[in-house]
């Protein structure tokens, strides 16, 4: 594992999309950028499985007082708890903190029936912002993404143009998209293409 708990000594390292060109393709009329894609490089991700008895340990390290309900997220500061399934959650934490958080959760869960897995490098997180965000995603996703339905704080695991993704609505015009590292290049290329008509930019 490349990451360590010590943020200061952490080597920058490659990411799933570090080979992709940073570019901005604005619309010809008016030069708008409807979708801005940013890779959340090295964002810590920990898969957590367990029943209600994992709450004390989760509360200690994320600050959330309740586990998220179905299709919901709980965000406290830099840490986000994403509901994935009954008894399964994804914890997002600061880049470089994941190994430390992983071992702390393991310690605090003790004999609780639970599984903690560091999936930081298995998944790639993208931040998507912009007015055209939901229109672009709707091209490849059957989920109802209307702002009145898929509201801020909701999440969904679904399929975006054949690729399995987790969508997290941070706000009306900002999503976090999490996909497998091996699908990241494809998802990036698809988003750049689908967003072309609205203007699109990618910053590594």
């Amino acid at each position: 594992m490349a990451s360590t708990a010590n943020k200061g000594s952490r080597a920058p390292g490659r990411t799933a999309l570090s080979g992709k060109t940073k570019q901005t393709i604005a619309t010809p009329d008016g030069g708008r950028v409807g979708l801005a894609i940013t890779e959340l490089s090295h964002l810590g991700k920990i898969n957590l499985r367990g029943g209600d008895d994992i709450l004390p340990a989760v509360k200690k390290h994320t600050g959330c007082s309740n586990l998220p309900e179905n299709n919901r997220t709980v965000q406290i500061g830099e840490r986000t708890l994403i509901w994935l399934a009954p008894d399964e959650f994804l914890v997002l934490c600061e880049a470089g903190e994941e190994a430390g958080l992983h071992s702390q959760l393991m310690l605090d869960l003790g004999k609780v029936h639970a599984a903690v897995t560091n999936v930081t490098d298995a998944l790639c997180a993208l931040s998507l912002r912009g007015q055209a965000l939901r229109k672009v995603l709707a091209k490849g996703c059957a989920l109802d993404l209307h702002p009145s339905v898929f509201t801020a704080g909701m999440c969904a695991q679904t399929i975006l143009s054949h690729a399995a993704v987790t969508l997290v609505a941070v706000s009306d015009d900002q999503f976090t998209l999490i996909c497998r590292t091996s699908f990241a290049a494809y998802v990036h290329d698809w988003l750049m293409d689908a967003g072309l008509e609205y203007g699109v930019s990618f910053k590594g």
């Binding site: 179905n70 399934a85 009954p86 059957a142 969904a156 695991q157 679904t158 399929i159």
Partner: peptide, 11 residues
């Protein structure tokens, strides 16, 4: 039963 209505291709 957990995620709500979704299209068939997800199943």
């Amino acid at each position: 039963p957990h995620c709500g209505p979704r299209e068939e291709s997800e199943f």
